[in-house]
Each structure stands twice: as C-alpha cells, then as structure tokens.
Amino acid sequence: MLMVQGLACLRGDRLLFKNVGFELNAGGLMYVLGENGSGKSSLLRILCGLLKPEEGGVFWNGKPIDLDTDIYQADLTYIGHLNGLKDDLTALENLQISARLAGNQVDDAVALNSLAAIGVARCANLPVGVLSQGQKRRVALARLWLTRSQLWILDEPFAALDTASVDVLAARLGEHMSNGGMTIITTHQEVTIHAQSTQTLRLSA
C-alpha cells in the first residue's frame, strides 16, 4: 500500500502544490491531472524518491520510502518523460540492460516477446537513435511486460503513441491492476483503463 501525507513541493521559490495526500491500495489506479507546470512530474519524482518533498512523506507498506529504499525500489517501476534509452545501443540491448538493472533476469526470447507485445519487434536490432519518437517511447514501455514490480509510476505514457499502441498499453495496465498491481499515471488523453478502484488527483497551479 502506498500512503502519501501532506506533500508540499517547492521549485525555486514557487510553491507547486501543498497538502497532497492519498492512499493507493492493491489493484488501484490513480490519475494525476493538472495543467502544464502544475507539478505533476515533480509529484511523480517525489513518489519515486528522486526529489525530496518540502514537507510531508511517502510511505510504502507503512515505512517511509527513504528508510527501506532498496525494498521500495525493487517494488517500483518508473518511466518518466525521458525514455532512459541509449541511442547507440539496439532496442533489445536497451531493454535487457534496463530490465537487469531493475533486478529481472531476461533472455533474448523473453525480451523480444515484450518488444513484440507493443509492436516494435521489427526494431529489435536497430540502434535506438534511428527510431522515431513513438518507437523509442514504445521500446521504453516494453519494460512493463518484463517487470514484476507492484507499483508503476508512469509520466505521460500515452504521449507520442499511435492509437493501436494506446489500446495495447491500456490493456497491459488493466492486466497489471487485475493482478493486484498499482499504477499512478499522468495523462492528457482520454483512455479507458480497467481497475478495481480508480481515483483522480487534480493539481491546480
């Protein structure tokens, strides 16, 4: 269970948000909505532990995330607005490295399957640098077919995707939630994702 209490975020001397709190249980989906610059990405980065909040705390299964960092990070998959891909490595190499860094052993066949799941199997052996924006995004998202972590934090995962890929990803998210996973997601698009419980957090600038 993820519990967030009284978060406040200060960037420079501008207060992005304060008193943000929620609870997310197994099978739960949470949309974080807000205008550009309202602090959605900053909130997600705080939830990942990449950014220290000005006030408040984030608790995973009752413990502050900066205490049992390794346990929390093993349960966490974060895909930010940067893809985290190396232009000089192939899609397959990128995927395998990021999966192994997150602690999942994957062989070629498994990695290829997950690239195929989101429709970029053809690009497996191409350097990521030559792929289009949408293809790069899909290579980054292919990690979601490999990871076993419970909490997914996704920053604009649907941006730059074509409609077919949006549906595939939404189905994958639904599957994750039906297995007891949790997802926190920011998006500007109307996408139907099936979850046991859905909540919305609106940040106002």
Partner: peptide, 17 residues
Amino acid sequence: AADFTDGSLEQMLIAPQ
C-alpha cells in the same frame, strides 16, 4: 552528461542497487 540527458541516470538512481 549523456546519462543525465537521456534519463538513464534517473533509472540508475531508482534501481534497487
């Protein structure tokens, strides 16, 4: 620098290692 701009540094920071 390259890890910073392409986001792999973020992934290293939140890796369970």
